[in-house]
């Protein structure tokens, strides 16, 4: 397992976290290359179905990020995200995966460093959890 490279799906809100990730990039901040970022218009758009789908397709972890509470472009999208991610976490746990494989983080457009740090932390966490038990054998 020493050379285990986690496959992580990251959903990032267009108005904040995606820009935060961009900022991390242009500021040349280092973070591990394990995430595949999917831009969404709001974290509230990320449904438990999408999260399960990522796991079903072999993700070892799923990272959801949106604007800080109070800053959502659509007022309450991130409140929805909180609820949806909590529901997904419960399902993930019932399915026998570690709930820590799913993570929600608020990252604003100016927080390039925070994005890099939290992704680095998440990748470390998934590394210590190891491969997802339902990862496709391919």
């Amino acid at each position: 397992m020493a050379d285990f490279e986690p496959r992580i799906v990251a959903f990032a809100c267009n108005w904040c976290s995606y820009a935060g990730a961009d900022l991390a990039g242009v500021s040349r901040l280092q973070y591990p290359p394990n995430i595949r970022t999917i831009r969404v218009m709001c974290s509230g758009r990320v449904t438990p179905g999408w999260i399960l789908r990522a796991f079903e397709h072999g993700a070892d972890g799923v990272y959801v990020s949106g604007c800080h509470i109070g800053d959502c472009h659509y007022a309450f999208g991130n409140k929805m995200a909180e609820k949806q991610v909590a529901l997904a976490k419960k399902l993930v746990e019932q399915l026998g995966l570690e709930p820590d494989r799913l993570h929600l983080e608020w990252v604003s457009a100016s927080e390039g460093q925070k994005f890099a740090d939290s992704v680095t932390g998440f990748v470390e966490r998934i590394k210590s959890l190891g491969e997802s038990p339902i990862r496709r054998k391919d």
């Binding site: 449904t47 999408w50 399960l52 399915l95």
Partner: peptide, 17 residues
């Protein structure tokens, strides 16, 4: 339900559960 239940069923068909 945005595929939540469909995906759930697909995961329930996995070997190492």
């Amino acid at each position: 339900h945005q595929g939540t239940i469909k995906e759930l069923m697909r995961i329930l068909a996995k070997d190492d559960l």
